[in-house]
Design a protein around this nucleic acid. Structure first.
Lengths: 335, 335
DNA sequence: CTGAAAGCGCTAACAC
DNA sequence: GTGTTAGCGCTTTCAG
């Protein structure tokens, strides 16, 4: 390996002289300087990063980012926001858990042994004790979970409010029998959305009906097919996310239901690509994903550098984006 | 900071004893062992990663991944493939260039000063000299560019063949006037696809017509609108990617053209999410993105560990995935 | 069992 | 100008 020592030997000078030349510090005779530069290039010298970090109080930060699935648009956009905030001197180590809980736990546990200075955990299912334990060692930013730990910042979307917005919109728009395809009951996000949905229904003296699903298109399709075959009656659907909504739409179409005339439908996440491509275009609840990523990164960096953060929790507000899938031409409601 | 030294002091033992206990090596008296473990936990000791790497010939690798836009499904899926291959002991540093050439160059140049052992560069526009220079220092895997350098592996999709497949499919399916929305003429990928398209047209004594576009939905929409307003005649469209195709479809629909009856259309990339959601569903050329990511990671790791690679180039074959947008009910062609 | 000592590659005082 | 020295935090012989 090419080292300073090696160059020093080749040039008959001391290691520190080489170091000075290569770092442009101190004064060194022109002839030596040239020779050192030449040799360094020849043998392809690259300074040992770890050795450097040992001795410098380097300002380079390394943060770990854990996501359940980087190919999911929500998380890739989140990642984009994080990357945006991390300039030259913050390295982002991406870790995809592939929605495998064991793997996720292992990744979180091992982070601090990997030179990682802080962790951003996107929407995980790991238990709180683990976060509590790990946060003793490195700062953590978590999404959609509410911790009040010293070394931790929470980034939260007001999911309850979002769900209420969606449901109320359907109601105002003339729907009376609205069902909710909710995702699993384990995820905090889903729990909150179920609450918001239920609240809105009760406020309007309507009966809430929650159906558990997964989070992908397939599970939305499957559940909707099931409801249709059971001959369930409904005129509105609120879905836990856009993918589930898209699956549901597919099933509804196959059964010749008209959207939004027979059944109105609202998604969540507002992935513009998806929402606008599908026919009819999909009304959805927008969350400022990229911005949330930026804040996450900024908070983490601050947490690492200052050991603590004044603001322990950021709550973002969702917004309703109305498209064709929920607007009936009855004049009962207009944008 | 919590260090071995600190623990040693607190326990009245030597640093090496502490090291042994914490690493479970060598034999140490039970009482000391317990005390050391206890103190280490109390003061929240985490071994210094860089110090460790200095002395161990650690098997942990750090690879850098440069993409133009992580929120683009192609690259997030690619990333997924890479992550899949990198187990416990390979760290992936994600770097998004945001399609900024300056930033991309800087990222590539700085990688080796950031403890990065090798680089995967996704579909870049950096000039070849830079790659040549950097590959002297660290191994590089590049996409869609054909290098024959010692320290480099190329991962390539046979774009020409893919374009030919798409075009031939349209021809077999009864189209005679096929236009190509091609992206820009700078990107190698586009050049290859144009060639394949042209070849297929000529083979069938048809006249190729290439129209430059961008790579997003908007530019597909815009170009198609333009063609329609100019009253260009065509019965088939081959697009450089799915997004452009989707934009084109939108424009065609607005002008009340029937797809595939009036105009058949084929995309490229086969992003399943998009291709299957749109109405009509979009025929496309599939490239095994995730697999390409896996191979990229595997090659790079091999390159890092062995200094060179037998295989300098992987060429992947595209595949035609037929959906509604190109199948006319004329019985001229069936799947 | 336990600790002293060397050394990983580098930077930074501090002499010469 | 230039080299010597110390030390970053850790692992690993090697004596005792």
């Amino acid at each position: 390996m090419a080292t300073l020592k090696e160059i020093a030997r080749l040039c008959n000078v001391s290691v520190s002289t080489v170091s000075k030349v290569l770092n442009g510090k101190g004064r060194v005779g022109e002839s030596k300087r040239r020779k050192i530069l030449k040799v360094a290039k020849e043998i392809g010298y690259t300074p040992n990063y770890h050795a450097r970090r040992m001795v410098e109080k380097s300002k380079i930060l390394t943060i770990g980012l854990i996501v359940p699935d980087i190919s999911n648009p929500f998380f890739s956009t989140l990642t984009r926001g994080i990357e945006k905030t991390c300039g030259e001197n913050v390295l982002v180590i991406l870790m995809d858990s592939f929605r495998n809980l064991d793997r996720e736990e292992k990744l979180i546990k091992n982070a601090r042994f990997r030179g990682i200075d802080g962790l951003i955990i996107g929407n995980s299912r790991v238990n709180d004790d683990l976060v509590l334990e790990i946060s003793r060692y490195i700062p953590i930013v978590v999404f959609d979970k509410d911790y009040e730990l010293k070394n931790t910042v929470s980034i939260i979307l007001d999911n309850k409010h979002g769900a209420r917005l969606a449901t109320t919109h359907l109601i105002k728009n003339g729907c009376r029998k609205i069902v909710h395809l909710s995702g699993t009951s384990e995820l905090y996000v889903s729990v909150q959305r179920i609450e918001g949905y239920t609240l809105a229904m009760k406020e309007n003296n309507l009966e809430p009906k929650v159906y558990l699903t997964g989070y992908d298109e397939k599970s939305g399709y499957k559940k909707m097919k099931e409801l249709l075959s059971k001959n369930e009656k409904f005129d509105g659907v609120f879905c836990v996310n856009d993918l589930v909504a898209i699956g549901a739409i597919k099933a509804l179409k196959e059964n010749n239901m008209r959207i939004p005339e027979d059944v109105s439908i609202v998604g969540f996440d507002n992935d513009e690509e998806l929402c606008e491509i599908i026919t009819p275009s999909l009304t959805s609840i927008h969350q400022p994903v990229e911005e949330m990523g930026e804040i996450a990164a900024r908070s983490l960096i601050n947490l690492i550098e200052n050991g603590d953060s004044k603001i322990k929790k950021y709550v973002f507000s969702p917004r309703l984006v109305i498209r064709e899938s929920s607007i009936r031409n009855r004049g009962e409601y207009s944008v």
